[in-house]
């Protein structure tokens, strides 16, 4: 698999071992510009570990990671400036207002005219009334929108999202998904999405990696997987794989 210029992420032979535990086992995939790749798998499948390695938070035991043309093991800061991350499991400082939090990250990502960018994001994500409220006083849905604004502060070319709509009501979840689709269409941003929400993955992802015990057990577009497993939705495919009920009838696609 040769890396080509229009791949935002190129991962080859990625392995992470903690003592005897193999968290990620020889993972290889590409993510194309403007595409959305979904990481699907049960708890402990290796999704968060993979994202942590892509972000440079975690050093792999073996393998290579190239993000936006930069080797993440040697030159991660050049890539980090052009990407961003959101997870409901990582908080923003609770006592700071939303505006102060966004200003902090505007500085950390060296965003020009941070105040204008904050105003723009507030307008697009309907955060106007929240800007001067402490982050700790927001509801789960409001926090998710603020976290999304933080992850977009630097107009990222690659967005890594770990369960972006976890704990959101259907209305807010749909709002976030709609906004992500629009942002991707307008900017060509690539998205790597780890989620347990199968409907979300079907809607947003152009490619899906099915992970189990750190290995890719299947991959392809959502429609490919549905066809291959003869199922009506990805949740059934997920259960087939998780419970070893059946396997896809054709070989998985090579890319993503």
């Amino acid at each position: 698999m040769n890396g080509i210029a229009n791949h935002v992420i190129e991962v080859q032979g990625l392995t992470k071992r903690y003592g005897d535990i193999l968290a990620v086992d020889d993972l290889s995939f590409f993510a194309p510009v403007g595409g959305t790749v979904g990481l699907l798998g049960g708890n402990g499948a290796g999704k968060t570990t993979t994202i942590a390695m892509l972000l440079g938070l975690l050093l792999p035991t073996a393998g290579s990671i190239c993000v936006l043309g930069h080797d993440m093991l040697r030159d991660r800061f050049a890539a980090l400036a052009r990407m961003n991350f959101s997870s409901p499991y990582v908080s923003l400082p609770q006592r700071l207002t939303v505006r102060e939090n966004l200003r902090v990250y505007g500085h950390l990502y060296n965003v020009r005219d941070t105040d204008r960018r904050i105003a723009q994001l507030a307008d697009e994500l309907d955060l106007g009334d929240l800007l001067d409220r402490p982050a700790g006083q927001l509801s789960a849905g409001q926090k998710t929108r603020v976290a999304l604004a933080k992850s977009l502060i630097n107009r990222p070319e690659l967005l890594l999202l770990d369960e972006p709509t976890a704990s959101l009501d259907p209305d807010t979840g749909d709002l976030v998904r709609t906004w992500l689709e629009r942002y991707r269409a307008e900017t060509g941003c690539a998205i790597l999405l780890a989620s347990h929400n199968m409907a979300e993955v079907e809607r947003l992802c152009s490619h899906v990696l099915m992970l189990k015990k750190g290995r890719v057990v299947d991959r392809g577009s959502p429609q490919d997987l549905l066809d291959r497993y003869g199922r009506d939705d990805l949740e059934e495919v997920f259960l087939d794989i998780a419970r070893d009920r059946r396997t896809g009838s054709t070989q998985p696609a090579a890319v993503a």
């Binding site: 938070l57 908080s91 609770q94």
Partner: peptide, 18 residues
Amino acid sequence: LEELWSRNLGHVFVSPLR
């Protein structure tokens, strides 16, 4: 420790902050 208490380290360390 303030970063640790606010569970903000993940965001700080994935920013370009050296």
